[in-house]
């Protein structure tokens, strides 16, 4: 049944009429995703991409029954948009926006947790359930419906994994881009747990990067509760200490958040760790046979 989003999800787009929002909403609709409308304050009552535009998320929930929101709002207003969605009763919020101030996210994360809402991102490529719903900016044509779940902090590296899985003759149940910021709504462990509990997922690819302790936390959880093979990779084995590698969260602070340290813990916890990202697909094929 996949996780987070499927063909029955009623999805709204916050920042619907902006350039990014328009472009990606169009692609989502073309894929067959159930986009029920969008929100742009001040443009309520109009129509965009043949879908209704609402002034507030609350209106979108009341009038269109929205239960999932994807956010393309500029960074200065994105935390507010997340809070609005959580307040309106949206249960799954996916925030694509990159560049939200950390202070804003600290309070926002606490708030959405208190509401029992699942926030994916920010600074992420979104969530994709092939054949069901594309709620993000991923290129749809590389996906194929299947039974491998993917969790990743990065965009194009997720595509790399998806592509290899498709070419290996497998396919994806759901791919979750959790985001590359220091504060993100859903941790690696939480995303892995969703896929581990999903009856339609047989194996999981977990892609992390330098910085933070999320992959180690996920690895320890997998050791305790894992029931499916997990193939893992950590990007940034060659990244120097103290330098930010593109993503706001990708920075080595201490000895525990290097790629080597994370890969070691993952291996100790029974994850099939690949040294090269080129080996993700093949390794999953082998892991499934074991």
């Amino acid at each position: 049944m996949s996780v987070l989003v499927n063909k029955n999800s009623k999805i709204i787009v916050q920042g619907f009429t902006g350039t990014e929002g328009t472009f990606h909403a169009q692609q989502m609709i073309e894929y067959g995703t159930n986009v029920v409308g969008g929100v742009t304050p001040g443009k309520g009552g109009s129509t965009h991409l043949d879908r209704p535009v609402f002034n507030t998320v609350e209106d979108a929930v009341k009038k269109a029954g929205a239960d999932v929101s994807i956010i393309f709002v500029p960074p200065a207003f994105a935390a507010d948009a997340i809070q609005e969605a959580a307040d309106a009763g949206i249960k799954v919020i996916i925030c694509i926006t990159e560049g939200i101030p950390v202070m804003d996210m600290i309070a926002t994360k606490k708030y959405v947790k208190s509401k029992g809402v699942t926030l994916i991102g920010p600074n992420c490529p979104g969530v994709m359930t092939p054949g069901g719903a594309k709620v993000g900016i991923m290129p749809a044509f590389i996906f194929k419906p299947g039974r491998i779940g993917i969790v990743s902090k990065s965009g194009t590296l997720t595509y790399e994994a998806v592509d290899q899985i498709t070419k290996a003759g497998l396919g994806q149940s759901t791919a979750i881009g959790i985001g590359g910021d220091p504060i993100i709504g859903t941790s690696t462990k939480e995303a892995v747990e969703m896929l581990m509990n999903d009856p339609e997922t047989d194996g999981i690819i977990m892609i992390g990067e330098i910085g933070g302790g999320m992959e180690a936390e996920a690895a320890r959880w997998i050791k305790e509760h894992g029931t499916k093979p997990v193939v893992g990779f950590i990007a940034g084995q060659t990244a120097p200490k103290g330098r930010r590698m593109g993503h706001a969260g990708a920075i080595v602070g201490g000895a525990d958040d290097t790629a080597a340290a994370k890969m070691k813990i993952m291996e100790e916890c029974g994850i099939f760790v690949v040294q090269s990202p080129a080996d993700l697909g093949e390794t999953m094929v082998k892991a499934l046979k074991k």
Binding site: S154, G155, L157, A239, G246, S276
Partner: peptide, 25 residues
């Protein structure tokens, strides 16, 4: 030269595994 930060870091790692050393991100 890569598109995306995660893939860029992964590409640096591929360079290292191929016997080189990355000159940049």
């Amino acid at each position: 030269m890569v598109n995306g930060a995660g893939l860029a870091m992964a590409t640096m790692d591929v360079i290292k595994l191929s016997g080189g050393e990355p000159a940049n991100f």
